[in-house]
Design a binder for these strands. Structure first.
Lengths: 192, 192
DNA sequence: GGTTTACCATACTCTAGCGTATGGTCACAG
DNA sequence: CTGTGACCATACGCTAGAGTATGGTAAACC
């Protein structure tokens, strides 16, 4: 009944299911997060699943919550402690590619924006992020309204980039082409 | 066997199915384009469908082709005959909201970018559109590389806007807030 | 007027996934 | 060593949708 030594894991927890669910979402999208495939991948059957959760919906909800918390910590950790607002804005873009899993999950969530449990998450996340961005722009001397618009604009660029990535239309993240583009975006959208 | 008078339609054609499919996609997304629901909505059964098409995949392919053609005509018609490149760029953004159906279909296609039949369409469309944009920027005196980056940037803004729209996070298209934002985008991204 | 052909209905089969019911097992408490 | 509860397997039933097989009908044609 105790967790057993962490190497072998004789028994699963709800958190294990949630993590596995997020893995699957990252790989194949929200709608592919089905419970029988999940169980197979974890080497058990759905008999196990329905002991931990009451339904697929329930797992999805919990997994999304877990992801959202993780993302929130990321936002605060990586953008909170950078003093200069310009660096904060730049790090927003550079953060693409780091935190691979979290990022892939987010991309798949965007693709599933229509889902009733996904939408509110995306909404909250977008709100938080845009507020962060707007604050940074204000700290750089922008009028509040302008800063809000600029934040929306830059966040849209980010979302659009993700969309192009889903369509295989972004240069490899390590290429010069990519670097040049990022440079361009920064120069165009972030005042000196 | 003849088309019959166009008011009453006694019998369906493949084109009818394709159009209905696009309607459904616009309303509920690609994965909701199932053939039995479609048949119900059209007042027939799938017996009819399988006479016109060999499979669901086949219908999807044809419907997407039809959409792509329509979209291409749109691009040429609305952006081709505008002289001043600046006006052409502006009209690119203003075009959101007009051509409602085509536009909603596109939005849903973006959400289904992972689908093997959807992806190449999105790729071609994005390519064409970004080329158009890049040409306009070049006509305004930009270096080719810069124009390419700027085209990608502005197209990303467009895609990001669609994403936010799917998340219910865009102001009503007729609001002042929206107008102000569009103004901001144009001023920021399109040189005078 | 009988035949063909275009179009559609009906009645299947098959699959994947959700959810339920029930029973087994192993650890640990007493 | 007996029981209890945590965890899981097995075996169901149910639904939606894909695809097939087959037969019906009405218009067109010879």
């Amino acid at each position: 009944m105790k967790p057993a030594q962490k190497g072998e894991r004789t028994t699963l927890s709800a958190a294990d299911w949630e993590r596995a669910a997020l893995d699957l979402i990252a790989e194949q999208g929200v709608q592919a997060m089905a419970i029988e495939p999940l169980a197979r991948r974890m080497g058990v059957t759905k008999g196990s699943f329905y002991w931990h959760f009451s339904s697929r919906e329930s797992l999805l909800k919990q997994a999304l919550l877990r992801w959202e918390k993780h993302d929130l910590r990321n936002l605060n950790a990586s953008l909170g402690k950078i003093d200069h607002p310009r660096d904060r804005l730049i790090s927003f873009f550079r953060r693409v590619g780091k935190e691979k899993l979290t990022h892939e999950v987010f991309s798949e969530l965007c693709a599933a924006a229509g889902h009733p449990h996904v939408e509110p998450v995306l909404e909250r996340v977008a709100d938080r992020r845009m507020k962060h961005l707007a604050v940074a722009f204000e700290e750089m001397g922008m009028e509040p309204d302008l800063a809000r618009h600029q934040a929306r604009l830059i966040y849209s660029v980010y979302l659009g980039f993700l969309q192009l990535q889903r369509q295989q239309q972004t240069p490899s993240l390590s290429s010069e082409e990519f670097e040049a583009y990022i440079e361009h975006v920064i120069n165009t959208l972030i005042p000196a």
